[in-house]
Design a protein around this nucleic acid. Structure first.
Lengths: 349, 349
DNA sequence: GAAGCACGCTGAACCGGTTCGCCGAAACCG
DNA sequence: CGGTTTCGGCGAACCGGTTCAGCGTGCTTC
């Protein structure tokens, strides 16, 4: 059990004061080049790493950001999205030597409470908000708290919190045009949770595009993103009298489940049914046929979100009073690209 | 932007000293019942939450545990295991008002460096070690550091770090006996990463059981757990002259991929091929047919690991010098249960 | 050669909790 | 009634960093 080295140990070894050591280690003026290198050498030799709590206390920053996920323990694992997002976030954070604090919560109330606690405890310097809703209480709450935050999703109108997002309208149009070109006229969509912002945006985008092209039907059924519901809804869709020739899913888990149901019902894919997934995780390439899907680079997206959050944290550290309240902004990422694979084909006559 | 309330504010409001407030808030003797309730009331009213850094500094504990995952950004999402584990861990931690700090690393060296930094910074009070290897450098490293830790997996012999694990021998036996009963005589296994402890344990268990029953062949091919390798190996297995009638996969991602390949090759499941998966995530119920698999309660497992870690942290806080070096122990969980589903059936004559 | 200045460094205060020694008053004792 | 114990509470030190006022030295400047 090695002893931890403190700044005082280094000061004693170098024959200087604690203050000088602090200046030297942080690369600020106040010490000569000679003593700086000497101090750095001693610090390196003694294996000095600053005590995070002590630094946080004086500087009042935690060098950490938080993320709260609102999903049940059982269902969160199946969705590759979160882990990919987190891993992207993490890459950027650790590059900036920030830590990531994770908490899983059950309700919005719990989530707000977590933010309040994190803020009061000074456990984090900022947070990332996932699964942005159409009217999201968290945005105002966080803004009132004065805790730096980034909305992972958007665009958020009248935002007091910056958002990082990608356009979903164009991909929706792409899908429908693609399916139209393949001859599909009866299309169903198994959508995500209704309250979520991107679900609403896609709802609108599908409706708009459908109105422009002469589809017979473009129906949307909302779900909770789980495989069970995906399967159940698919079963219902496929056993209806005028069944769709193509089904679009709002995530890949439901698409895989839908594919399973189609197999179960003895439908040939893509001859009798085309399937399109959203969020192209490796899952889409595991099935047979492989799923046509909308590809986004989720880790890169997470990185971008973390990056924006870090600059935000950096900014309001240097100039505490954000005079221009409208410092919030919106960063748009490259929209998802359609990756056609084996699960889509010409509609049967 | 609300001001944070400090212990001094409360002291001033209650007309007592900081020390008294501290005693009152922490439920320790030193204040009368009357002033205690008064202080608590004021603290509650002012919405006091202690500054974590300040407390950490004096008490030298971070009220957080760390977990480092060694996987690439792209492949970590697909494996439901990690997120389920984390969510179980998280549940226990937040119940004890501990935080979870997550970091994703690329190499063992990086991982060790992270542990050293966490320890030196006092950022965490303990860590959870995932993916235990057959000879794992991390165990000694952590023990030397004196950082409380729990190995998520085992059993680890000669351990200086307690382990939480479940027996894999019995489930392996269960699988082989089950397949034998169904008439399978040529069984292949697509195993996980060779260096991992549980892979080695399963290797041995399969070999032992195979020796007891008169299988024609029980072959094992190691992989990296990814769907791509799962698919590739399956393709190779199924196109060999004497192809197996049953394939067992060491995780569910590969099993799904294998199922896809079987479909692609036009094999009827389970008539022409039986498929068994390990780690029964919801993924196994998404496919058609649903995958027979070995069910473990991963979130519960994570909770147990966190629980053991927390008691460990609690213990070495009260009595710093662990006189009996062999305080390490091993907690065994309920082994995985075989859940037969549609992907397994009688072997064809 | 005195005044002024920049530089290098020290010592102490400070962040916000915890903890310990100590003291005054009340209670208890023979 | 004096002496001891107990209790409630105070004040200060401490954890390990950061930051700032101030001070001595050496150099420039006129």
């Amino acid at each position: 059990m090695t002893r931890r080295v403190t700044i005082a140990d280094i000061a004693a070894a170098a024959g200087v004061s604690k203050g000088a050591v602090s200046y030297a280690l942080n690369g600020r003026p106040g010490v000569s080049e000679a003593t700086r290198t000497k101090i750095l050498a001693i610090a390196a030799e003694m294996g000095f790493v600053p005590n995070r709590a002590a630094r946080s206390l004086s500087v009042s920053s935690a060098q950490a950001v938080g993320i709260a996920l609102r999903r049940s323990a059982r269902t969160i694992g199946i969705e590759p999205y979160y882990m990919e997002l987190i891993s992207g976030i993490e890459a950027t954070l650790s590059a900036g030597s920030f830590g990531l604090t994770l908490q899983i919560v059950g309700t919005v109330e719990e989530e707000l409470e977590v933010y309040r606690r994190w803020w009061a405890e000074r456990r984090v310097d900022g947070v990332l908000l996932c699964d942005i809703g159409t009217s999201d209480r968290r945005l105002d709450f966080i803004a009132d708290l004065g805790l730096p935050a980034v909305a992972v999703g958007g665009p958020v109108e009248g935002a007091r919190v910056p958002a990082v997002w990608h356009d979903d309208v164009e991909p929706c149009r792409d899908i429908l045009e693609y399916l139209y070109t393949l001859g599909h006229r009866r299309v169903a969509r198994v959508a995500g949770i209704p309250g979520l912002l991107h679900t609403a945006i896609r709802d609108q985008a599908y409706a708009d595009t459908a109105a422009e092209l002469d589809f017979e039907t473009v129906t949307t059924i909302h779900s909770d993103y789980t495989g069970e519901q995906g399967a159940q809804i698919t079963r219902r869709l496929l056993s209806s009298s005028k069944r769709p020739t193509a089904i679009v899913y709002d995530n890949d888990v439901m698409a895989v489940a839908g594919l399973g149901v189609a197999h179960e019902l003895g439908l040939e894919i893509p001859e009798q049914l085309s399937v399109v997934a959203w969020d192209d995780s490796p899952l889409c390439r595991l099935t047979h046929p492989a799923l046509t899907s909308l590809t986004r680079d989720i880790p890169a997206y997470g990185s971008k979100c973390a990056e924006v959050l870090l600059t935000l944290i950096g900014e309001n550290k240097v100039s505490e009073p954000p005079s221009t309240e409208s410092r919030t902004f919106s960063v748009q990422c490259r929209p998802a690209q359609l990756s056609p694979r084996g699960s889509t084909g010409l509609a049967q006559a």
